[in-house]
Amino acid sequence: MEHYKQVGVWIDHSKAHLIGFKSGQARLLETVESPYESVRRVEGEGNDMTRFSSSPEYSSNNEYKKHQIVQNEINEYMRIMEQKLVSFEDILLFGPGTMKERMKNRLREKKAFEGKWLSVEDSDKLTDNQLVAFVREFYKKEGV
C-alpha cells in the first residue's frame, strides 16, 4: 500500500472517510464506522420519569447514564481516529456539524500530533467522488 503524508478526513458522528493525497492525486483510503448510536432503543425500556411521578420535574438519573454512554462512544471513536491519523503529516478535517472541531481540539492536545499541520473546513454530505475532488482541490489550492 502506498504511504500518504497528506490526508483529508470527512467526519461526522456516524463515520469518517479518509482520503489520501499524493502527487496531485487523491484516493479514498478507508471508511471508519463510529460506535456512536444517535438513537438507542432498548427493548422494554420505559420513560425517564421516576416511579412516583410522571412529571418531568422529577426525572431519574437514567438521563445521566445515557449521556455517559454517548460520551464513552464518542471518545472511543476519537481514539480510533487518532490511531488512524498519527502517521500523516498534513491533516484536513472537513464535514458537517461539530465533530471536525472536536477532533481537531483532541488532536491538538496529543503530543503525537505536535508539529503536524491541521486544517478544518466546512462541507455538506458528499459522494465518494465529491470527497476525492474536495481533498484534491484543497491540497492543490494550498500548495502543500
Rank of each mutant, 00 (worst) to 15 (best):
M1L: 14
E2T: 08
E2N: 12
Y4D: 03
Y4H: 06
Y4E: 12
Q6M: 14
V7L: 06
V9F: 00
W10D: 04
H17D: 14
G20R: 02
F21K: 00
S23C: 05
Q25M: 10
Q25H: 15
Q25L: 13
L29I: 09
V32T: 04
E33L: 11
S34M: 03
E37G: 09
S38R: 15
R40G: 05
R41D: 07
V42F: 10
E45T: 00
N47A: 10
N47F: 09
M49D: 15
F52K: 13
F52P: 00
F52R: 11
S55I: 14
E57N: 03
E57V: 11
Y58E: 03
Y58R: 12
Y58M: 09
S59C: 07
S60V: 03
S60N: 09
Y64G: 08
K65S: 08
H67I: 14
Q68R: 14
Q71D: 11
Q71R: 13
Q71P: 06
N72A: 12
N75G: 02
E76Y: 12
E76S: 10
Y77T: 01
Y77F: 12
Y77G: 00
M81P: 05
L85E: 04
L85G: 01
V86E: 08
S87A: 14
F88M: 01
E89C: 06
E89W: 05
D90E: 15
I91D: 01
L92Y: 00
P96N: 04
G97W: 05
K100E: 08
L107K: 05
E109P: 01
A112K: 15
A112T: 09
G115F: 04
L118K: 00
V120N: 03
D122A: 12
D122Y: 15
D122I: 15
S123P: 05
D124K: 12
D124N: 13
K125F: 14
L126F: 02
T127W: 02
A133T: 09
F134V: 01
Y139T: 04
K140P: 02
K140C: 10
E142C: 14
